[in-house]
């Protein structure tokens, strides 16, 4: 095991800000993309469905 303690892991040899700052940005980016994608998809489906029922009338 490289890390003696949890604190050491978080500190990343003094570069914690930079290491976690990078990984954090990736996490936010990926989560945001997935959430937006799912929301966009369900909105598209709803909108198309609405248009379809509207066109039928």
């Amino acid at each position: 095991m490289i890390w003696a303690s949890w604190n050491e892991f978080v500190a990343m040899g003094g570069y914690g800000l930079y290491v976690w700052g990078s990984y954090g940005a990736v996490l936010v980016g990926v989560v945001l993309e997935i959430v937006l994608l799912r929301r966009g998809q369900s909105e598209t489906l709803k909108r198309l469905k609405r248009m379809q029922t509207w066109e039928k009338q």
Binding site: M12, G13, G14, Y18, V19, S22
Partner: peptide, 11 residues
């Protein structure tokens, strides 16, 4: 680079 190089795994 010590631990700072670990950014490479996503960069």
């Amino acid at each position: 680079q010590g631990e700072a190089y670990r950014v490479i795994f996503i960069h």
